[in-house]
Design a protein around this nucleic acid. Sequence first.
DNA 1: TTATGCCATGGAACCGGTTCCGAATTGGGA
DNA 2: TCCCAATTCGGAACCGGTTCCATGGCATAA
Lengths: 366, 366
Amino acid sequence: MRKRTISIATVAAEAGVGVGTVSRVLNGSNQVSEATRSRVLNTMERLDYRPLRSASSLSKGRTDAVGILVSVISRPSVMARLVGVIDVLSDAGLDAVVLNVENRAQLDRHLSSIIDQRRVDGIISISLRIPEERVTRIRKLDIPLVLVDNSLPNLPCVYIDDVAGGNMATKHLLSLGHRRVGFIGDNKHTGLGMSSSEDRYAGYLMALEAAGIEPDFDLVARGPHSSEAAAALTSALFELGKHRPTAIFASSDTLAVGVIKAAQHHGLKIPDDCAVIGFDNLEISSILDISTVNQPLLESGIKGASKMVSLLNGEIAKPHREELSLDVVPRGSSLGIQRNHPTKLYGVVEGPNGLQILQGGEELVS
Amino acid sequence: MRKRTISIATVAAEAGVGVGTVSRVLNGSNQVSEATRSRVLNTMERLDYRPLRSASSLSKGRTDAVGILVSVISRPSVMARLVGVIDVLSDAGLDAVVLNVENRAQLDRHLSSIIDQRRVDGIISISLRIPEERVTRIRKLDIPLVLVDNSLPNLPCVYIDDVAGGNMATKHLLSLGHRRVGFIGDNKHTGLGMSSSEDRYAGYLMALEAAGIEPDFDLVARGPHSSEAAAALTSALFELGKHRPTAIFASSDTLAVGVIKAAQHHGLKIPDDCAVIGFDNLEISSILDISTVNQPLLESGIKGASKMVSLLNGEIAKPHREELSLDVVPRGSSLGIQRNHPTKLYGVVEGPNGLQILQGGEELVS
DNA sequence: TTATGCCATGGAACCGGTTCCGAATTGGGA
DNA sequence: TCCCAATTCGGAACCGGTTCCATGGCATAA
């Protein structure tokens, strides 16, 4: 009975060289003569030999994989970041191990298994706050950690200034003359330390104060992160009668959709009866013509993953901490007039099987 | 200098037992006396010992990881399936290695690295057709392969009948009295073998034929998978004047959004001037009140991943091949009944059940 | 010719768990 | 008291690459 699996030893024997030489060929060492190299390569080809990842991992001491901790993966904003991360890692030849975290217990479980068993060479955390003690442990083990949409001192991270963003959004509404501006946000304590909604709320308060407006906490409501929940909360605000808000800042576009729904339900015209602004600039806000605060989601993932790649190559992540910029995207839900047309149409051309996009579309894959 | 890493040997020496015993404790063998077990556990605790994954992988011959091949991850329908897959794998203690595939070259690259290097124990393919020769290779290597939103003979898979779905959607429009029904779909050749759009088109043709309607290929258009592209294609159909379609079946909700946009642009009322139905029942279609064909996206991921877990446990995936059911979700974009209407988004619109509140909200995380 | 040095190479030791075989201990029954 | 079986345990061999050291060959310099 012949040995079933073809190992480096099989190749070495077959090619009449030592195992060391085969390994050197595998790793592209220049310590091998051209003649020997090609002989070994031929043998590998002939035997259909493939190196076993786990064996290599063991002796090299690294896995060539990166763990990605993701908070509530189904959220569109989180998804967009994840896409960026995965693409960069993939290009760098690193495996992306995705770990979905929906509660504190899951976070702990994933962190233990990932960190302690050294399943990955580095960890990227998306929109998730890693507990203090875990960070120190990760540091002690010398495992690179990059934060995306989050920030901790002395750690490489890519983040935005949510307070400033909340401020910008609220100022936008104030600048349109609104005085009774409501706020719809996420619940405070999710156990995952996602603070963006609260930070945006802080910015909201700042803007009110700067405008000399006393905040009315009756116009502030928090709930689960879904448009249905936001609709319910908003509905309650609208029932305040003459004390109802004339404008609402929703801490994310998903919530803003709920606000719009509630307005429809109450027969309120947008933006005349109630102006609305969201946050994130998701595709939905463009489709529904909802004003929002743009933040570079995909880019945050790309930049974060790039930092990780640098760190794993032993380089220093160039801008150690990177703040991405925000800007208000005014649309029909706050401005009276519909400024730009919701749909920009592309030129089309006749094709054999109907119509094909001529330009501006997604690139055609072969 | 003491050895830095704490291995099983360190623990064994410290606890005064053999390495075999420590390993047995690690793996929960019942061949260890209670006294010894607790002594070893104490020592492990004291030394803060953690087993190294890659070492275990090497000797056990498995990685406890599953590769997930994903076609164009940013598509909402694909995302939803992915979420289901990740959750199930995570519960089973398996790593989810996500591989985004956007073109044929990437598919080949990922398949090679994943399969040949045995980086994973099994492969789940989402909305992606694996080339024939790869399938045979995977089979030969005895690596479990599960298809989600795809189907091949003799392979475990979870799929829908896209032809039937297209038929249902088109029939729905026909039943409303439409005779000139257009079709907006994806480009035929993406190199990734995603055939759902074409299958739905086949269903569309079937429905027309069953109704005794000669298909008008001027009403059929294909392009990249984006609402902008769909809007452009639809726009061209609307410019056919009196020959324009009175109803359109878009092969996905994303495309249906584009159809709606184009209608707005041309000042056409929906559904009066043009009825629309999409496919997938994404959240957006519910928000925009677009009729659609519902398919269980999350469920497909869950079921697919469950099959994988079974296979890795040496069991047989119970229903080897599983077809999930479809149903038409009639909404305002096709029914005459006026409900929340996208074209009147910011107008006053009364809806019979326009708002669903106070139920079905996201569960609070502790 | 001999000394010096570089290059290519073979192969043992090693990475850190797992597994299996054989040995030691224990307990029960005759 | 002795024997046999069951239980528990130690440790060598092994998984399949990587690395480092020793070696032999060849060319160049002395």
